[in-house]
Amino acid sequence: MIYSIFAQVYDELMDTEVYENWLTFVNNNAYSGKKLLDLACGAGQLAVMLAKEGYQVTGVDLSSEMLALADERAREDDTKIELVQANMTDLTGLDQFDVVTCGLDSLCYLANQEELANAFRQVFLHLNQGGTFIFDVISPYQTDVIYPGYMYNDTNEKRAFVWESFEGQEPHSVVHDLTFFIAKDEENNLFQRYEETHMERTYELKKYLELLTKVGFKKIRASSEYGNNEIDEKSTRFFFVCQKL
């Protein structure tokens, strides 16, 4: 994947309100301290915002390209965050934290329930007693009803972006085909084409609750709309706040 291309375009397209809402969601639910691990931190938008709020942030991502972008963003904002390349299913060697966050359905990129359970187990092991795990996932309604047939296009003088989504082979899964045309010269006469395929998978609410309980979380709250609403049959995203007691 050309993560750097996707990250730059994604930054341009993503409504900053999403990160502001996530920041509020974390502030409202981070009960136990300021030492925070941001899993799948990507290009570092949320990690930098959290650091500016006074959290001691460690950002983890599997992609070195994403981490390079996160480091660049932190330096530009004169903000200190620690960045670590790691898979969320194996956080061996990392410290203990008061809060762990994983936003923007990053957990849905894990291939199966075993990987998801491993990620939950790793989070639990690296949380201090009383610590909080805050994350979101897309819902089966999003994968089964909203995404299939979805298309989004965005263009400007320097690039064009096409996003198409299709139903995946596994239950509650979706395939995103992304195509980029990026200008190669200053006159914007030549464009390079890049393609990426992203696959996401989610589960029914009861499965998430079952896996979280099995790894040891005792207090689990699930909601929609950043904790502001109850989950119903048309909720597109589940938000979780889990405490290690």
Results as ranks from 00 to 15, higher is better:
Gln243Leu: 05
His172Phe: 09
Phe133Leu: 08
Arg237His: 09
Phe181Ser: 15
Asn87Leu: 08
Ser63Tyr: 00
Tyr208Gly: 00
Asp177Pro: 07
Tyr203Ser: 08
Ala47Asp: 00
Ala160Cys: 02
Ala119Thr: 00
Met49Phe: 10
Pro148Trp: 07
Val26Glu: 05
Asn27Leu: 10
Tyr203Lys: 10
Ala119Gly: 07
Ala30Pro: 00
Lys206Tyr: 13
Tyr19Glu: 05
Lys234His: 11
Val100Thr: 11
Val99Glu: 03
Glu114Ser: 11
Leu212Asp: 01
Ala70Trp: 01
His198Met: 04
Glu82Tyr: 09
Met151Ser: 13
Tyr109Arg: 06
Phe240Gly: 01
His172Pro: 09
Gln129Asn: 13
Glu76Pro: 01
Val57His: 00
Gln169Trp: 04
Lys158Ile: 04
Thr89Phe: 02
Met88Trp: 02
Gln142Glu: 08
Asp154Thr: 06
Leu190Gln: 11
Leu104Phe: 15
Met151His: 13
Ser4Glu: 15
Glu65Asp: 15
Glu186Cys: 05
Phe240Gln: 00
Glu17Trp: 03
Ile231Trp: 03
Cys242Ala: 15
Val48Asn: 11
Glu114Ile: 11
Asn128Thr: 11
Ala51Cys: 08
Gln8Met: 07
Leu67His: 04
Leu94Asn: 01
Val84Thr: 11
Glu72Asn: 06
Phe97His: 09
Leu39Ser: 04
Phe238Trp: 08
Tyr208Leu: 03
